[in-house]
Design a binder for these strands. Structure first.
Lengths: 129, 129
DNA sequence: GCTTAATGTTTACAGGCGTAGTCGAATTGC
DNA sequence: GCAATTCGACTACGCCTGTAAACATTAAGC
């Protein structure tokens, strides 16, 4: 029996996430393009970026399509899914799955801008009706 | 503000966090007590727990006080500081430091219970006045 | 047809993490 | 006093991650 696409979260590391961000911003891209884009923030060599891409492909977070002699990379995992998963992981692990305490902590740290408050208020109103 | 240099966050790993939780719940405790408590969730051997405690001491997240032949361990890092730091890290890394998108994601995932909403609403009201 | 430049694959290596065994000193029971 | 127990410290080891070099292959240019 095949274990088809069984439960395989296969965590994406922080460095890998940086690569995903540039693919989410635009895709598909070649390895060289990804490298150029990602190097605006982190100073990585091309081999490093290629390693990260390979690992992402192995984790099935990125798909490759051959384009002549090279590959074009595009994200398989959506940004929304990634963000959702990570957020939930944090909330589960640290706050027993409840978002309110998280919110309280952010508020306490003054990590909430006036805009944030307004936006959240608006979201709340929407959810409430 | 007498906090000149020596600002070294020194990330606490997930396994270490489990140990911190039992120390936050009650302290001080001996290594054996910590092990008993933590083993209700994760099935670790005593040496494993001791290693984690040592690493936490090295990271200055836990303090030791000798008690006869053994040590009593207590948290140095407060739970609030830890949660605050982790939350902020996530928000910074994934949502450009803005809490509203995080909130939106949690809402979308239906990770917000009715109680959460009520609590957050109350917090908002408090922050707003 | 060769050399070269581009590109993916393999291999490497240090540091952190999860997990745990062993060692040596201190303590307690007899 | 001496053996058994109890601790913390040291050591170990495999996996993952960050970072990158070396290698292989292939398309392109001369």
């Amino acid at each position: 029996m095949a274990r088809p696409d069984d439960e395989r979260p296969d965590r994406i590391s922080e460095a890998e996430h940086a690569v995903m961000e540039v693919l989410w911003a635009r895709s598909p891209q070649t390895a060289a393009e990804v490298c150029a884009a990602v190097c605006e923030e982190r100073d990585w060599s091309l081999p490093t970026v290629k390693t990260l891409l390979s690992r992402l492909v192995a984790k099935q977070a990125v798909a490759t399509r051959p384009d002549g002699r090279r590959f074009l990379y595009s994200p398989l995992l959506s940004r929304a899914d990634y963000l959702g998963g990570e957020s939930r992981r944090l909330v589960d692990r640290l706050f027993g799955g409840r978002a309110a305490p998280l919110f309280a902590h952010l508020a306490q740290e003054e990590a909430l801008s006036e805009d944030d408050l307004a936006e959240i208020e608006a979201l709340l109103k929407e959810l409430r009706q």
